[in-house]
Design a protein around this nucleic acid. Structure first.
Lengths: 225, 225, 225, 225
DNA sequence: CATGAATGAGCTTTCATTCAT
DNA sequence: CATGAATGAAAGCTCATTCAT
């Protein structure tokens, strides 16, 4: 699937090359679905909005995806795929575990910031108690890469002696993700309640520094601090 | 629950002897709104569902709250009020900052676990970019108690010498909340991806222990570890 | 009923003098009804709009008028009463029938222009095939003064010899009213179709001159032209 | 009725063999809209009434027209189109201007009598201050034919010497239309007030005779009377 | 004299979806 | 491969009106 190739798919009508046309329509519907579901949630986003955003028709969604739920599942799978692609491109210097861990934290925080649809789609899915994702065959395989990256770094640090041996990679992974996710997910209510706009670069950087510090202090042997 | 304290009670009247008083109708609509909005979000929850859950009628919601959005705002205000009430009941031993901080973490994690509506309502509000809460006059005052509790503990620990002086109370507050919130908010997708059910007591306790540890390591002077 | 005394009846709450209070509420509801029904018609105007415009409550309309239809009848009667009051104040020089007829035309055209509610309420009533006005005991008595004025002038002119004897006063009355009413009633669609704004004073005056001319030419003996 | 000529037919398609073609559905909705709006006005006529009168469903109105207002605009355009079609079929003997003018008056008065929907729809539109018609691209072009017919006759009469040169065609047009329109539009309240049923053929004919006389006396040179 | 509470039916509009080519 | 047409249910909301004090 060539996701990047289809943004602004306005003139997809009468494309000329017959074989490409189908893929283009399907893809632009999927892109539109991600956008609309991210903005309005599963319930708030309508089939009509999506098909219009894709310069297509309601009927095409049923043609390609069957129904609204399956379209949502496809959207979820697509954003996870993208996350994994981005993460795979992350090259860590495992010989320096502390630095590598810092890189992981930075990557996660920036990815969430630059891909708010990732956060809102997952929120929508959790509101529905994960009922869509369990229908996906690909669910399990999505998470493993992410957690294994953390696991790799953690093992190296322990082997090296700078990291504490009692930290579970699952907990460390969840900690990093939680601190990145929450900031993005709740930035509107937080901004209102704290009286401080969390969307300014300065506040974000301050948070990033704090999170790196907190993660390292959690993981490092006191001697290595 | 002290109904009189509830906000926006426009139609004031003598309570009288009537079986189903106005106070009851308004309150049961609000309780139902919290329940339904928590389960289905703002878009997914319908006026009809709510009025039926409250054994009342659609029309009454408009009579007491004006429209769906104002009802949602009232629901948000109510759950924040409840959180603050619960937090106010928390008695901390400020002479022992480390223990007090642990108590705060435990309180937050348990409150989120036992009040999932708090999490889902806030998620729904953030999906709408905080547009409802900015309409609330009470927004600002809600957060201050929560963050000031953390601030108090932090100051004491710093004064005592056991806590590092460079930690911002806002960051510490957000860290605690993030680690509690995320676990609850994303437990369904996390369970699916990790292949492990996060709703079992054992996993929760393990997480709680980890969070306490992480928070303390972030805050404590290395010497005090 | 002191209709003129109640415009801007905002501070009618806690009026002090007990007896006046009721009349004030009833009157302000009636004034509001005329305004709202005139602007939105019988169907388009709501009980709620009216009671709010009168700084009162829905319930009061039922208290004073019984239901929406009776309120509309009361509004119709009131505007007819006002028209007759205004017409009664018209002093004609019957010794000069031609001039008197011109005065009648001017009066009618200006009354419609300055009382658009008269026109829109009657239109609304005609849309309902006059079903409300037939319920009014006062209906018949309303028209007689108006037509008798025209009749008086016409008789004088005929007696004098300047008017043609074959003109029926009913037709003459309808002609005058039609030319005044239509201009006001249809000014929006006419303006759109003619591409000329009929609400400017110049265009109105031009029309007035034309109507006077047309009426006189219809009535006068050719010799008297 | 030539359905293809109707405006705004967005969903174009092959007519096919289906029993209830789209053309039929759209048209019957439009016919029903004219009927219902004419009977109850814009506010009084409901989408439900219209769709049922057309043996169709609410949803189809939104499919073909978008919303209630656009349906009303389409109805307005259609009745104007019909009027113009009828007028175009009117063949006048311009060599005899006096007779031609009489024909125009007769045509207008009869058209209004036989098409009461024309009157009530325009009244409804004027109640809304012409807000719908200004949205129509076709507004301007509708009136020109009507007024140009009057203009043609008037010019001929002036050229011939029988008509006065100082009469404006716009005023003459408005006079004719006003006298026809008002009789039809206000026949219910007029009947009530005059105590005389304006719907009987005799009274109508008497009025027609009077109007022809009034119009001619307004236009003719005294010498030609 | 006035009001707060309640009601059921109706409103316009949008929903996800299927039919028939 | 794609489309125009159609559908029934439900959405949020407003309607005129009555109850009970």
């Amino acid at each position: 699937m060539t996701a990047k190739a289809i943004s602004n798919a306005q003139p997809q009508r009468r494309v000329g090359v017959r074989e490409k046309s189908a893929e283009t329509t399907r893809d632009s519907l999927l892109m539109a679905a991600i956008k609309i579901f991210a903005e309005h949630g599963f319930d708030g986003g309508s089939i009509d909005q999506i098909s219009k955003a894709a310069n297509s028709h309601d009927r095409m969604i049923y043609y390609y995806f069957g129904n609204k739920e399956s379209l949502f599942v496809a959207a979820l799978e697509e954003i996870y795929r993208r996350f994994n692609v981005a993460e795979a491109a992350l090259t860590l210097d495992l010989t320096r575990p502390k630095l590598a861990l810092e890189q992981v934290v930075r990557f996660v925080l920036h990815y969430y910031k630059e891909h708010p649809e990732f956060v809102t789609l997952l929120n929508s899915e959790n509101l529905h108690r994960g009922k869509h994702i369990v229908r996906s065959d690909k669910a399990q395989q999505f998470s493993s890469p992410a957690i294994s990256v953390v696991d790799d770094v953690l093992r190296r640090g322990i082997a090296e002696g700078s990291f504490r041996a009692t930290v579970a990679s699952r907990d460390l992974y969840m900690m990093i993700v939680a601190l990145g996710y929450f900031y993005q997910s709740n930035r509107f209510t937080l901004s209102a309640f704290l009286g401080e706009n969390l969307e300014t670069p300065e506040v974000f950087e301050q948070w990033e520094t704090f999170v790196i510090d907190a993660v390292l202090r959690t993981v490092l042997n006191p001697a290595a601090l």
